[in-house]
Design a protein around this nucleic acid. Structure first.
Lengths: 221, 221
DNA sequence: ACAGGTTTTTAAACTTGTTCAAAACCGGAT
DNA sequence: ATCCGGTTTTGAACAAGTTTAAAAACCTGT
């Protein structure tokens, strides 16, 4: 169902390129399907032949953002940063990748939160990134929490993205500030999780999240 | 700028009543401005004379939800429940009030998160409710956290509402589950906050939130 | 009662996302 | 060359949010 024809794939790609350009320049509302079609040298209906809706179009574009985040973050995780810095790196990479799409905030959220196959893939990629961020930090966080930390950080990132989506401050500076503060906080929390009380609380939080998040109907009939 | 004429106010109210009816019956997408106007016995343009947009209309309706939540919750807080139960009461009241508007999720969020004068009022009402929920619980939470607990709970509620907005499960049962779990968790956390470590973490979280949330440009040029 | 202004109402347009039936195109089998 | 089935493209239409110019209704002071 992917590429019927080489030309078809090329046209599809052209639409996406034009779209990302126009979205970045004129925002989500400011970019009309008609303008995308026109700038791609196609008729309106033709764009709809390739993408069933405007939302689907940006959703497809959003898929690429995760890869961009990973590309930007991974090289900066190599060295033995401390945990706080590594968290910050990943946060920054996320906000950088999202920046051009600020106006599509809620559409992106539906894409990110949605539970179809494609977002499972994205989730997996982000998870891997967080695992690496934790693994690459010196000193290593306490063993007790090392396993759950990536999940926890991934969760905090999701919160950050939601905040960003509704953040109206210029250049999303409030989101930047939140990212910096949250990075410090989480690093400190990781250290403290050596204490059983703290550890229990973290466990509870993770438990709540798992319980609520987990009953997504997996593939099958 | 509020009510130019008694009749004007009456018409405005009629639109709102009809709208809440139609939204509840046919959902957000299923309710058109034209249908609202028609059911109100007005012309389309006339509805727009009273409300600058469909979003603004539901935003205004959303304002009333806070009052409904308070009305529903307050009587059930009277007795000396324990903290967990009181938290649950307020959560449930929120989800009950929101229920008919599930389809307007993101629109409501923009309204709730937006930082204009009107949402300041709503915030204040919710805050008062949470203060009462804490004050009415037996045993009282540790003095150290009693002051900040309402703010913290308010924050968790906001998270719950965001989750609800994107919750596609039937009858928002996942949100209900989250509410129950979060209520337990927060109650336990309150008790634990007697311990200095926990208290410090809570302080940090509140600090982050305050720092990020507080620089809303208040009135004045 | 009436002129002058303000508020309310209307009808018609405009915009933009989306759909659809018909046409144009293309590569292979006859 | 011609027909065929599938793919791509088009142009027109529709639906619903939004805007607007002008008419109608209303008020108020004379």
């Amino acid at each position: 169902m992917e590429t019927k024809t080489p030309k078809s794939a090329e046209t599809r790609a052209r639409i996406q390129n034009v779209a990302v350009e126009l979205f970045a320049r004129n925002g989500y509302r400011g970019t009309t399907m008609r303008s995308i079609a026109a700038a791609s040298g196609l008729s309106l209906g033709n764009a709809y032949y390739y993408f069933p809706s405007k939302e689907a179009l940006v959703r497809d574009l959003a898929r690429g953002l995760v890869d961009e985040q990973v590309r930007a973050a991974r090289p900066r995780l190599r060295s033995g940063n401390n945990l706080r810095d590594n968290i910050q790196v990943v946060f920054d990479a996320a906000l950088d990748a999202l920046a051009p799409f600020h106006e599509c905030g809620t559409v992106l959220l539906r894409a990110a939160i949605g539970n179809d196959e494609a977002s499972d893939v994205s989730r997996a990629k982000e998870f891997a990134l967080w695992r690496q961020a934790v693994a690459a930090s010196l000193p290593q966080p306490p063993a007790a929490i090392r396993g759950d930390l990536p999940e926890l950080l991934w969760l905090v990132q999701r919160g950050l993205v939601i905040f960003w989506a509704y953040d109206g401050s210029p250049d999303a500076e409030r989101s930047r500030r939140l990212a910096a503060n949250a990075a410090s906080l989480m690093a400190r929390l990781a250290v403290l999780s050596r204490l059983p009380v703290v550890r229990h609380i973290v466990d509870d939080v993770i438990g709540v999240v798992r319980n609520v998040e987990s009953d997504r109907p997996k593939m099958g009939s």
